[in-house]
Design a protein around this nucleic acid. Sequence first.
DNA 1: GATGAATGAGCTTTCATTCAT
DNA 2: GATGAATGAAAGCTCATTCAT
Lengths: 197, 197, 197, 197
Amino acid sequence: MRVSDKHNKITQAAVKVFARKGFFNARISDIAKEAKVADGTIYLYFNNKYDILISLFEDEMGKIILQVKNQIETMSDPQEKLLFFVQNHLHLLDNKKDLAEVLQMELRQSNEFMKEYRNTRFIEYINIISTIIHEGQEQGIFHKDIAPGIAKRAIFGALDEMARLWILDKNHQYTIEETASQVCNLFLNGMLVTQTH
Amino acid sequence: MRVSDKHNKITQAAVKVFARKGFFNARISDIAKEAKVADGTIYLYFNNKYDILISLFEDEMGKIILQVKNQIETMSDPQEKLLFFVQNHLHLLDNKKDLAEVLQMELRQSNEFMKEYRNTRFIEYINIISTIIHEGQEQGIFHKDIAPGIAKRAIFGALDEMARLWILDKNHQYTIEETASQVCNLFLNGMLVTQTH
Amino acid sequence: MRVSDKHNKITQAAVKVFARKGFFNARISDIAKEAKVADGTIYLYFNNKYDILISLFEDEMGKIILQVKNQIETMSDPQEKLLFFVQNHLHLLDNKKDLAEVLQMELRQSNEFMKEYRNTRFIEYINIISTIIHEGQEQGIFHKDIAPGIAKRAIFGALDEMARLWILDKNHQYTIEETASQVCNLFLNGMLVTQTH
Amino acid sequence: MRVSDKHNKITQAAVKVFARKGFFNARISDIAKEAKVADGTIYLYFNNKYDILISLFEDEMGKIILQVKNQIETMSDPQEKLLFFVQNHLHLLDNKKDLAEVLQMELRQSNEFMKEYRNTRFIEYINIISTIIHEGQEQGIFHKDIAPGIAKRAIFGALDEMARLWILDKNHQYTIEETASQVCNLFLNGMLVTQTH
DNA sequence: GATGAATGAGCTTTCATTCAT
DNA sequence: GATGAATGAAAGCTCATTCAT
């Protein structure tokens, strides 16, 4: 078995266990059992329990970012790009339920460790949004007075809150498509009937 | 000392300690020391560690909800109400830094307990937004095709993400007023130059 | 309320609680609640938790010893005296269930405290038996080669074991009278058909 | 070191510590230290503190029962069997002082747990006595009107009380042999000079 | 004398991490 | 590289006892 296989097996097991129990309530032995590996083996691939979480985040976000960027490159319309980003984000909730739950929940800990972790992957991810907005502004499609640095956060936050609802409340009132459409419409057209610009 | 004083002293101490260390890393003895009270005394007022967190959330959210609702009642314009809600939420980040951090972070744990805890206070809080939207729609100011149930989440999520940025990244690029203005503008007018409605 | 009344109320409450939960699992607050008295009040009458147990034992055994001795003094036949002692001991199981249980169980703890406690009341109680045996030997009714110091223990032990069975196994196969009769017969006549004396 | 060795080491350490301090006053760390093992190691072999006590009882009683039964099988005379049982029981007090003390004392706790624990080993042990009595009755050696169910308890109780005296009062007035002889004589011949049968 | 809120030492149990095999 | 038994620090919670009122 190649080294990376075991590393990956443990990562996937950790995703499942963290999603089920939460980071603090998850035991190393749970992950080991899920990965069909001895407890000690985990420490051949990760420094400690936190390292599994960070590492998991880096790896999985890396894959997601790559995919999204590849897709978006093939598009030219900023509106289309944004819609894709939103739809893709929401679809992850179904396709990678456990992962979504871990990314959603566990990376929000307010402990010192987490505060120090410079979450560059996350920044890279949401910067995809600001890039789209910037393009839209240059093409004259989006208002120039929108601050991409704030809008990217607002859009991500909105999506993230949708995700939280989706994860916590299993009775989904809206489909992913409806939700994506509503969210895009909101950010593109706003709520006002008569624009004040 | 009145009973409620000690209860309150412990609650305030817990806010500080949870904000600093996070719920799981906070020790009961930390809270006791911060409250200048014996460890055992805490258990005269709370059933267990979780109970402190929940109870803290209920109490503090209760106060915030009351204040916001009172203020909003004095206004008639939905746009004005929304702006107030957004500004008020962001101002809490400065006025009640520790509390904001705890509400932000600790109530996102994915453990079984949290999943079961029906967070009615939280729902009550974000329903203030949907009520405003509904009013706006009835007055013909807001688009009828906006789903208030989605929009309230989107707006809260956006604010929440701003809060997270504010808490984690201490180098604030924008003032609270600028941020509030940007966010309101985004949700009211959208990003598109030419509306598609 | 006279002092002794409160002392007695606490003692009776302790008997109930110790019988129900055992000494170590009984809480002072349980006893206080049962006695309808404040926790602190107990410490006006007893030095500590152990003191309640010891004191309870001394008091209640004192009463029992007095009664038994008074009754036995009115009798002349050692056989009759022994039968009375046995019957009386077993009847206590019904009349004073809780007390019997506490005396039975709780004074058998092997902790250092208990080992040091010179249980003079207990010795006084079982010496009633040896006195009876001695009288019987002097009257030529009982074998001279019986060692009263051993026989008294054997008889008490037998009764005590009956008591234990009675307390632990609520399905009583024999009545108290049958049991008393069997035990007396055993110690008086032995099991052998042909005596070896 | 084989697994059973560590299990056994902990059991033996527990016997010593329970005998010295009593179950409730014994700390897990005392047992761990006595067994030269880490506190946590105990929980690899036992579920909790109670489990050590129960398990210890089951194991050690099991061994004792096996030995006694094996020896008794080689004898034919019920009188001889009874004498052996009595002598053997009293000899355990010397050979396995600590164990005797624990079995004596700690299994008399009146807590809920103990009341529920169906002490089958103990029943198996005293049933050895009733079997002997039954045999004696069938051979016409013992009186038919002796109830084996009561006599077994009486004999065990007598022995148990001897044991208690032996453990608590270190100034032994009689040797084990003398005691055994006296007890057997008492139960075989009774105290009366003239039998009433 | 009576109260009961407050104290804080004490203990069982858990679990991340190590290391001999 | 892999194992999993062993470690031992750590912490939530209890409850006998105190003492200001």
